[in-house]
């Protein structure tokens, strides 16, 4: 992809992502906020694609757009009273100022730092090396195993929390 198309695509995606994120918190209707969240997930997947992380992009769409968003929407449909979000009230201005200050500090940090740049070219094939890295040694084998235990504990916790009293 030529440099200019790449940049245009990136900034377009980034702008849509920020707009969608703002939509999630500004829209009063919870259902519309959820739809806005889906848009955000999709643009993030697009940014992953631009970074040559094709597998991650697919997983992002499958899990976040496919599963999590559906879950959120089902939850909204089941709780009829919660269609309208809580208005923020007076705290809105404080929260806004804090958020803006945070954005300012982080933007200052990002602009003024020389970040580490990798010199290795992006991989052509990503799935196989990723699998080797996740389940191989040396690699993230231990972390994957801990994540498996994490899922088990989440299931146990869910069973205990939703039990009949």
């Amino acid at each position: 992809m030529p440099e200019i198309t790449y940049s245009i695509t990136f900034y377009l995606m980034a702008a849509i992502a920020v707009a969608a994120a703002l939509g999630v918190i500004i829209l009063r209707d919870v259902f519309r906020a959820a739809l806005s969240l889906i848009l955000l997930f999709m643009t993030v997947a697009g940014i992953y694609l631009l970074l040559h992380a094709d597998f991650l992009a697919i997983v992002q769409i499958l899990i976040y757009v496919g599963a999590i968003s559906v879950l959120i929407i089902v939850a909204i449909m089941l709780t009829r009273d919660a269609r309208q979000g809580q208005p923020l009230g007076k705290i809105k201005w404080v929260a806004g100022i804090v958020a803006l200050a945070l954005i300012g500090v982080i933007a200052w940090g990002v602009i003024n730092t020389a970040f580490y740049l990798s010199s290795t070219p992006p991989l052509e094939e990503t799935v196989k090396p990723l699998g080797n890295l996740l389940f191989g040694n040396p690699g993230y084998m231990l972390t994957s195993e801990i994540a498996a235990v994490l899922l088990l504990s989440a299931i146990l916790g869910a069973i205990a929390v939703i039990r009949e009293k």
Partner: peptide, 25 residues
């Protein structure tokens, strides 16, 4: 001693504790 292990281990302990805190129902 790795940021990723730290995060996953932290989540493992936290998720269990979230459930335990609401255990009385």
């Amino acid at each position: 001693i790795n940021l990723i292990t730290i995060y996953v281990a932290l989540e493992l302990s936290s998720i269990s504790l979230y459930a335990l805190v609401s255990f009385l129902k």
